[in-house]
Amino acid sequence: MTKTKTTIFILIIVACIAIIGYPFVKNLIKNDDPLSSNTAEQVTLSKGDNIVGKDLQPGFYDVKASSTKLSFMGIELSENDTLLGQYFDNEEHVIIEGNGNVKLSPAKFNTLSSSKGGKYLIQHSGFYIVGKQIPQGDYKLSYFTKNKKTVDTKPFIQVLPKYGGNPLQTIQFEKKENYDITLKEGNILQVSKNLFEENNNIVVELKAER
């Protein structure tokens, strides 16, 4: 094989590797640092079957309801209810029922503030990135209700290794009022204050273990 043919062959191999490996590398970047590859754009959606790639761009979104009562992907929302860090993939169906609109904005992934006692209070359901929004470490997980109101359904919590990964730990507060969890860099903390509606009376608490 001549030197020119060898060079061309190597270039073809490199090009094939790049084409095949790009989705894998892109996925790694998305999981490690969602903000670096977030293609989400601000959009307002109303009742109907909205298709990702047509009615909205794929990406990570913060979702806010603008009506008194509607259903977003099966979750009942009232006015100003917010869901954070929601990821919508290409060709996925985003279904909205009821009256009013839902505003979707590129996810901010803001860092959670803590009290002097190392307590982090989570006010909204959603997905939280460990290492960016919450420091890695050992925590005591619990919840409380504002004004000591009684709730029928308890929060549902999962620790994921990454977005879309299989759960490392699932907590439903069935037998205890608090649980020990370990959060590592890059993990995702999934918080559902209620699986069927966003209940603003519930606050999830993380207390750092010293």
Score class of each variant (00 low, 15 high):
residue 94 V to N: 01
residue 27 N to T: 09
residue 198 E to Q: 15
residue 155 P to G: 09
residue 182 T to M: 09
residue 119 K to A: 13
residue 118 G to I: 07
residue 97 E to H: 13
residue 8 I to T: 04
residue 95 I to P: 13
residue 67 S to P: 05
residue 148 K to L: 01
residue 79 E to N: 15
residue 78 S to W: 08
residue 33 D to T: 03
residue 196 F to L: 10
residue 16 C to H: 06
residue 172 Q to M: 08
residue 29 I to R: 09
residue 195 L to G: 05
residue 184 K to N: 15
residue 9 F to N: 07
residue 99 N to H: 14
residue 118 G to K: 09
residue 169 Q to G: 05
residue 136 Q to G: 15
residue 195 L to M: 13
residue 56 L to A: 14
residue 94 V to D: 06
residue 27 N to A: 07
residue 83 L to T: 10
residue 76 E to L: 13
residue 147 N to L: 09
residue 169 Q to V: 05
residue 93 H to D: 13
residue 167 P to E: 07
residue 11 L to R: 01
residue 31 N to M: 03
residue 198 E to H: 08
residue 143 Y to L: 07
residue 82 T to C: 15
residue 193 K to I: 11
residue 73 M to F: 11
residue 188 I to F: 04
residue 151 V to H: 02
residue 138 D to H: 02
residue 78 S to L: 13
residue 157 I to Q: 01
residue 57 Q to Y: 09
residue 127 F to E: 00
residue 48 G to H: 07
residue 37 S to A: 06
residue 163 Y to P: 00
residue 58 P to F: 03
residue 57 Q to C: 05
residue 189 L to K: 04
residue 186 G to W: 01
residue 85 G to E: 02
residue 67 S to N: 10
residue 90 N to I: 14
residue 29 I to K: 09
residue 28 L to M: 13
residue 173 F to L: 13
residue 101 N to D: 15
residue 177 E to V: 11
residue 24 F to K: 08
residue 151 V to C: 02
residue 150 T to F: 11
residue 94 V to S: 01
residue 207 K to D: 06
residue 4 T to F: 06
residue 135 P to G: 06
residue 123 Q to A: 14
residue 168 L to V: 10
residue 147 N to D: 15
residue 93 H to F: 11
residue 170 T to M: 01
residue 80 N to H: 15
residue 80 N to W: 15
residue 38 N to W: 03
residue 36 S to R: 03
residue 9 F to R: 11
residue 21 G to N: 06
residue 55 D to H: 14
residue 193 K to P: 06
residue 3 K to T: 07
residue 56 L to N: 09
residue 158 Q to A: 11
residue 164 G to F: 00
residue 187 N to P: 02
residue 17 I to G: 14
residue 57 Q to F: 07
residue 70 L to H: 13
residue 107 A to Q: 00
residue 189 L to Q: 00
residue 140 K to Q: 12
residue 35 L to W: 02
residue 41 E to L: 10
residue 191 V to A: 00
residue 27 N to F: 05
residue 160 L to W: 01
residue 159 V to R: 03
residue 1 M to W: 09
residue 99 N to G: 13
residue 92 E to L: 05
residue 182 T to L: 07
residue 67 S to C: 12
residue 6 T to P: 03
residue 149 K to D: 01
residue 130 V to E: 03
residue 179 Y to Q: 08
residue 61 Y to G: 12
residue 104 L to R: 10
residue 112 L to N: 04
residue 116 K to F: 12
residue 208 A to M: 10
residue 184 K to R: 11
residue 209 E to N: 14
residue 41 E to A: 11
residue 54 K to Q: 14
residue 188 I to R: 00
residue 155 P to K: 06
residue 135 P to W: 01
residue 153 T to F: 15
residue 143 Y to I: 03
residue 94 V to C: 08
residue 3 K to V: 05
residue 173 F to R: 10
residue 68 T to G: 15
residue 134 I to E: 00
residue 63 V to P: 00
residue 199 N to K: 02
